[in-house]
Amino acid sequence: MTTKNMTMLDDFLVRAGLAGIGTALAAAPLGCFVVWRRMAYFGDATAHAALLGVAMSLAFQGPIMLGVLAAALAMAILVQTLSGRGLAEDTLLGVLAHSALAIGLVAVSFLSGARLDLMGYLFGDILAVNVFDLALIWGGAAVVIALLAWRWQRLLTATLNPDLAQASGISFRTEQMVLTVALALTVAVAIKAVGALLIGALLIIPPAAARPLARTPEAMALITAAIGSGAAIAGLGASFQFDTPTGPTIVCVAAAFFCASALVARLRA
């Protein structure tokens, strides 16, 4: 605070806070669809593939987010191609999610340790976010939100019932693909803030907490965004206060929101 030309973004805590909010905003509407369509495992498999993307980026010395985006997209498309071909859905997703994580860990081990902070990619390293990361996070979040807002009515109809959508000229497969792309983008946006292992938590817990408080899909998405952002800020503060790892602390706060909302729902019923 002593330097006169120090701007707000020079403060690492402010950058971390903005990164957390950007990630929460991208995850909010998508997380709602993940909950509504029972895609939790699908989200996990896609997020776990992110580590493989990190390894690829490091090997080819490309930008991390691009590698993560490519790996997440490839995994999401693989899941869609393989689903409905005999194996039960949860088994298939379990196989793919854990394999992707293991292959990612092995691939990363081939790379020299100096360049790599494995924990950072598994659980996020939000305090190390720089201005360039911040631009990517907010840019990616804007794309995800714009994409979902554009397709909102169609996505909701397809979520309700595929045949109902088809009768109105809405292709279930197209909308599924829209969600897949949005999911891959969100994983790429979130890897820096919460890491590959906790992206799933950020997708599921805030909408689950918002559900009892909402009467319409739009309200649920907005409440989810508020809860996610709140968890990011409060988690950041708590981790600073208690010197705990930031990504997991954010998820802990989100989980506390979930308990509170479940309690409220219980008391009202």
Partner: peptide, 11 residues
């Protein structure tokens, strides 16, 4: 969460 009137407005 879906009210009847919100449902009627899909798509």
């Amino acid at each position: 969460p879906l009210t009847v009137s919100r449902f009627l407005c899909l798509p």
